[in-house]
Nucleic acid binder design. Structure first.
Lengths: 208, 208
DNA sequence: TGTTTCAAAATTATAGATAATTTCAAGAAT
DNA sequence: ATTCTTGAAATTATCTATAATTTTGAAACA
């Protein structure tokens, strides 16, 4: 989506590579060679290495000391792990966001939800879905928590795009509505528990 | 503690700097200048920059584009945030560790707890405390989760060492025993909720 | 045919050098 | 006295070069 020129070369390289990994353009297990990447971006390998470190911190690549980095793979177990972490942290964020929730915010979330309904491919749907979650969680005002959730959502998107799920099915959107209803009627705990369960459904459908 | 020679120069630099930040040897807000650090370690700035990135991913420093990195500060709010994240994630880890819990593991935890009682300074106590948590959580077998918890524990240790709490008080150890008792009697949910509340007490006592 | 050895090629990690940006302090202007 | 320039020093970010390590592939051997 927004490639955004985040000043430094290494972050630009990092973001571009992240997109490719998430979308599946670079497949799991493949090696990323710094010279090749550097040449492609018309840069030297120093910023490339830093980009690799960024990707490593997001869990998108794994780095072995003198053997370079390769795109992280993911097993059924890892998918479940990410889903459980998301469930736990998003529920926490939502409970903390609740006191700061306004009608305006809920309306924005509703609109994001509708955008999801209109989505014609999985990429558009994922963007709308992520927006929905971001909108209702951001008011918690906990930057570290939001960053952690964002990284986990990125990982989830990888699984989604990897084709493990051919359909991105309607039930999820129904969950969204249930969450909004709970928030509108002041039931914070209910909203949080629906959200927690909802997030875990992403990890449900198994691969292979 | 264990400086560990993790092969590459950048990780060694990173670990050393991390220890200094955690222990308070380098105070919050101070700038880290790459040339100076490089000179001290007899290296060039390339590995130093990579070390900075590692520290950034752990939340120990903040980096502004062309202005370098400085040691992350922490407000009352951030302390609370980290505590809540820990509570949430450690409870998750414990619930998942529960099915794999053995008597041997519980005995090791008991021993770590006793080591905490014997500790004569806050550093020794923190190490024992961290061991206790690590021992009971590791069996969950969720590497990403454990890494996230580890980073949060590091942040917690910073707050602890920063002198916000003059005493590291007994109540925490009583919580440890309550957790062990619950685990021994098969009450997983009780253990998890005691752990969650326990972790949050670290963030309770205010600064200033 | 399959395995081992060994040297060339590729690749990573670090160092040294350069360009670009920011910081900081001294002096000018209001 | 305070705010605004301005330029030198410090610092960051990047590039080019070098050293060290790993990978690859072909030849020798069993």
């Amino acid at each position: 989506m927004t490639t955004a020129k985040s000043d430094t070369i290494s972050t630009r390289i990092g973001k571009t590579l992240a997109e490719r990994i998430i979308s599946g353009a670079i497949e799991a297990g493949s090696r990323l060679r710094q010279d090749h990447v550097a040449e492609e971006f018309g840069a030297s390998h120093v910023p490339v290495r830093e980009a690799f470190r960024l990707l490593e911190s997001q869990g998108l690549v794994v780095s072995e000391p003198r053997r370079g980095v390769r795109v992280a793979g993911f097993t059924r177990e890892e998918v479940r792990e990410v889903a459980e972490m998301r469930a736990s942290l998003e529920a926490l964020a939502l409970r903390n966001a609740f006191p700061h929730m306004t009608k305006t915010i809920l309306d924005q979330a509703e609109e994001a939800n509708r955008a999801g309904d209109r989505a014609r491919d999985v990429y558009a749907w994922e963007e709308a879905n992520r927006n929905f979650h971001r909108i209702i969680l951001t008011p918690c005002g906990m930057p570290r928590l939001l960053k952690a959730i964002d990284d986990l959502q990125t990982a989830s998107a990888r699984f989604l795009f990897s084709g493990w799920r051919a359909e991105w099915e309607a039930p999820t959107d129904r969950d969204h509505r249930a969450i909004l209803d709970a928030l509108r009627t002041g039931q914070a705990d209910l909203a949080a528990s629906v959200l927690a369960r909802h997030v875990q459904t992403v990890g449900r459908k198994g691969p292979k």
